[in-house]
């Protein structure tokens, strides 16, 4: 199984057979567990963008988001037998991604603290403006997007996770509760608090 060639585009493999194309995520992982590598490729194509988006909103770093999304999918590959069909596959994969992202964010914070403590008075970091020309509306959207991302970044970790999962990824409360392994009531209250905090950060731009 391990030496089977992986198709570069899973869609090619699944578009040939309509029945296969309609498979749920749970069917795909079950197929993958029984040795179908095409199923894994399909999982990758279904989840890569969602994972990158989720992790990017969490980390605010595209390269790191891609790296962690790949690590998540690698974990799905290496730990495929850990998935049990009692839970939703999306819940499982988001749990892996969120744990990886949280760990990385904590490491990043520690590195930042240590690098700041080593920084001299003259060592400051500046964001240089992009060289390519953009229209005014594009620039405005980009600016607003950055402000929203900044507001998300400022949320405490618990609030940030639920806010991204609910308002960016649009997952259900039940799914979020399963992903984070916290009661439904806690999820709802965290989302409420996160929204109020976000509104406070963004009220000047509304």
């Amino acid at each position: 199984m391990i030496n089977q060639p992986l198709p570069t585009s899973s869609l090619q493999a699944y578009q040939m057979n309509d029945k296969k194309f309609q498979l749920t995520d749970e069917d795909l992982i079950l197929r993958f567990q029984s040795g179908d590598e095409n199923a894994y490729s399909e999982i990758v194509s279904r989840y890569r963008d969602r994972l990158v988006n989720f992790i990017f909103r969490f980390m605010n770093d595209f390269d790191q988001a891609e790296d962690l999304a790949q690590d998540t999918l690698l974990k799905v590959y290496t730990h495929k037998h850990y998935y049990k069909n009692i839970a939703k596959f999306s819940t499982w994969i988001y749990t892996i991604a969120s744990n990886l992202a949280k760990t990385e964010l904590r490491k990043k914070k520690n590195r930042k603290t240590s690098s700041l403590s080593n920084m001299g008075l003259d060592d400051k970091e500046y964001d240089l403006p992009a060289a390519d020309k953009k229209t005014d509306s594009e620039t405005d959207n980009e600016f607003l997007g950055k402000k929203i991302q900044y507001a998300i970044d400022k949320l405490p970790e618990n609030f940030k996770t639920v806010a991204i999962l609910r308002d960016v990824q649009e997952l259900s409360y039940e799914d979020i509760s399963n992903i984070l392994n916290v009661p439904l009531g806690t999820v709802k209250s965290r989302i409420n608090r996160a929204r109020i905090q976000l509104q406070e950060e963004l009220k000047n731009f509304l």
């Binding site: 963008d49 990158v52 988006n53 990017f56 909103r57 595209f62 988001a65 959207n141 607003l144 997007g145 929203i148 991302q149 998300i152 806010a163 308002d167 960016v168 649009e170 976000l198 963004l202 731009f205 509304l206």
Partner: peptide, 8 residues
């Protein structure tokens, strides 16, 4: 605003 954030 958050819902309409550009998807990465």
């Amino acid at each position: 605003l958050v819902n309409n954030l550009e998807s990465i």
